[in-house]
Design a protein around this nucleic acid. Structure first.
Length: 187
DNA sequence: CAGTGGATGCTCT
DNA sequence: GAGCATCCACTGT
């Protein structure tokens, strides 16, 4: 079943854990989502916290669309916009277990190690070929393909990675025990 | 393993 | 001009 606008038109805190186990492909490359983080508009760590700008405009658009931004001048990062339009909340996709299009992803990453192919927000965007061109695109239409998980996985939860503000909030979710996480979860 | 620092572009102060 | 929702290469144990 394709995840569409209705799926994303809910609290980011409901949507984020339900994305673990879903399948994300871009032009046929990608795999199973194993790690995400929730960013709410009232959250000081969110790009939308200080209001709408040119960069974060897609966060203020309709749910079920992509928000892509450049990180540290080098990497791209992919978010999935949630909640009713205008509330500017989104889920950062941090890691995939690669399952489809492995050869193309290895070429893009110039890397053979499957474990590190999509283990991190910058890495997975490089592997899937995600750039600014994908900012604002709908997730239920090509080049995106986003399918709901078949069954509920065992979840891990913890604080988000790489932020300084609101660093204690446990809004990172992962597939428990996966070897494709960007970093392990503490227990 | 852990820790450090460089690359690099854009937004906001 | 500072500060980043990162990654990689390098150092030292």
């Amino acid at each position: 079943m394709t995840l569409d606008g209705a799926f994303f038109d809910r609290s980011v805190h409901e949507v984020a854990p339900e994305l673990i186990g879903a399948t994300l492909l871009v032009d046929g490359c990608g795999g199973t989502i194993v790690e995400v983080e929730a960013y709410h508009h009232e959250d000081p760590a969110s790009h939308a916290f200080r209001g709408r700008t040119k960069r974060n405009a897609a966060m203020f658009g309709p749910p079920g669309h992509a928000y892509v931004y450049r990180s540290y001048g080098i990497h791209w990062c992919l978010n999935l916009v949630c909640e009713p339009e205008g509330s500017a909340s989104a889920v950062l996709v941090r890691a995939l277990e690669p399952t489809e299009g492995l050869e193309r992803m290895r070429e893009r990453r110039a890397l053979d190690d499957e474990r590190l192919l999509c283990a991190g927000p910058g890495r997975l965007c490089q592997a899937l070929g995600i750039t600014r061109d994908h900012d604002g695109l709908a997730l239920d239409a090509p080049p995106f393909e986003l399918r709901a998980r078949a069954k509920e996985p065992e979840l891990a939860r913890g604080p988000r990675i790489g932020i300084t503000r609101a660093a204690d909030l446990p809004w990172r979710y992962g597939l428990a025990g996966s070897r494709f996480l960007s970093r392990p979860f503490r227990r």
